[in-house]
Design a protein around this nucleic acid. Structure first.
Lengths: 291, 291
DNA sequence: ATGATCGATAGGCTGCACCGATGGATCAGC
DNA sequence: GCTGATCCATCGGTGCAGCCTATCGATCAT
């Protein structure tokens, strides 16, 4: 029964309720008076209730009309606001974006977040931290829209945009033979237990990053697997072994650990921003800075 | 720009958003698929935002569409509820009624209120107390819809319905000559100061009610004006004078006052329910019991 | 009585929401 | 790689609903 009610009915009703005069209301609506009378009558028939008490001399709201008036006004107001909001979301001025990131990229991420929040103050950013593999899986699954990852392999359904790169350095215990040196050969680490991420967390990245060690003849066997750089470095500091790490995570080393540059061509670790290749939503484009 | 958006657009949008399939959505709406495509396209044009991302193989919501969906659903739900509510108000099943009353009618009013609340549980009753003149003025002004008054004069814009009537009795101090008697002549009160309502509070009622006194030769001069029966009776109890009052307000007299029946034909005081004669609103009719 | 005001009614026109047919893109199956 | 199926978009055509003008009838002021 109320399936046939249209917004036109509400707009007309409000005009008449405001003016309490069909002629003036029709003028305001830029239609002729008979059309207005007709539509009001139709609305009343549709909802089965008289909204106005009319004589040829006066028009008054009935109780039902008076009760409906503020609600109709509210409805139209809401609709206008909702349409406006939809427009803003469509233009990427408002909405929500989900971002997955690896914890070792917090610094670079937070810089971008600050800049983004300044440009899009009405966008709600939801953050999800995890390892590179998890972030990429979430990206594929749609849980996140943008992923900040490290050393991911090229894929044909994902766009990768380099954000930053940094060299790998060795981290050794303070009492290690090379601890005092400016730089060391990879071979100098061959005898020590290696503490690193599990290879399964990113086989490609693992292989690329450990290539210099292998080239130097080191048999890359991870003696101790650990999934957090700071934990890995704490292990090194307590003398459990050595590691190689991106420069930034060696920024503030604990007491028992020393950073040593690696000789030879530097291995780079790349922090990448990943998006679904099919994804051209304005918020995503805005975040990755394509516009 | 959003002036041309109609509820039809929202209903169609929701169907497509639910089905993510124009063919099925059209079927659900009992229209042909081209009409649906057309209307969705029109809506998108009206609000200037793409709501669906469509290929010939799949239909997906855009961010804007996803943001708009719950709002559109909410709007339609609200509208349905509002129309329903308007219908209930129109049928007098819900709404609000304002009732003015004189304080000496509380008992009879509260009985009616209880019965009314049982029959119309969703009607909000707002009460306004005052003197008969005030209640009638409020009725005329529209502040109240029903007035419970006492001994009002017949008027051509007001309907008066008798609710109850009761005889007037005299109230005298306990040490008054007639205090012990069953009944007294009006003339017996002639010597005492009279405590009553100001005549201006209801000249007609005043004249009618004091007629027996005048008939008995009493020079009706109000020695002490007072606007509340209980206060008047307290004055009597303290020996300040005598009064005549409707029986019900002498129900529980204070220590120093005595009720004495008046000899001769009894003067009746009428409690009346007043409504505007033009007022045929269902709630008012329901309250006065015309249906 | 007379004219002015205002909502309702009557009858005709037109835009537009809808229809059926078709096009064009994509995908599955052989 | 062709064929058929699926599905949204496009294209003319059509009927009705919403709008128009003209007029009526009721009410009120003078």
């Amino acid at each position: 029964m109320d399936q046939r009610v249209e917004l036109r009915h509400l707009r007309y009703f409000l005009a008449v309720a405001d003016e309490l005069h069909f002629g003036r209301a029709a003028e305001r609506l830029h239609i002729a008076q008979p059309a207005l009378s007709q539509q009001i009558r139709q609305l009343e028939k549709l909802i089965g209730v008289e909204l106005f008490k009319r004589t040829s001399r006066s028009v008054r709201l009935t109780d039902a009309g008076a009760a409906f008036r503020p609600r109709a006004r509210d409805l139209l107001g809401r609709l206008a606001a909702d349409l406006h909001e939809a427009g803003r979301v469509g233009r990427g001025e408002a909405g929500r974006i989900d971002i997955g990131f690896i914890s070792s990229a917090v610094v670079i991420l937070s810089e971008r977040l600050r800049a983004f929040a300044r440009r899009r103050p009405d966008v709600h950013v939801k953050l999800h931290d995890g390892f590179t593999v998890d972030v990429l899986a979430s990206l594929e699954h749609g849980t996140v829209d943008v992923g900040i990852v490290r050393d991911a392999e090229e894929r044909d359904d994902v766009d990768l945009l380099p954000l930053a790169s940094e060299r790998f350095v060795a981290v050794v215990p303070a009492d290690h033979p090379v601890a005092g040196q400016e730089r060391a050969e990879a071979a100098d680490l061959a005898a020590d237990p290696l503490i690193l991420f599990p290879r399964s967390y990113g086989p490609h990245a693992f292989d690329v990053n450990t290539a210099p060690l292998r080239r130097a003849g080191v048999d890359v066997q991870v003696a101790q697997e650990c999934s957090n750089w700071h934990t890995i470095i704490m292990f090194v500091a307590t003398g459990l072994g050595v590691t190689i790490a991106p420069y930034s995570v060696t920024d503030r080393l604990p007491r028992g650990a020393r950073r040593v540059e690696l000789a030879g061509p530097p291995t780079q670790s790349h922090i990448l921003m990943a998006t679904r290749r099919a994804d051209d939503r304005p918020l995503v484009e805005a975040f990755i800075g394509r516009r």
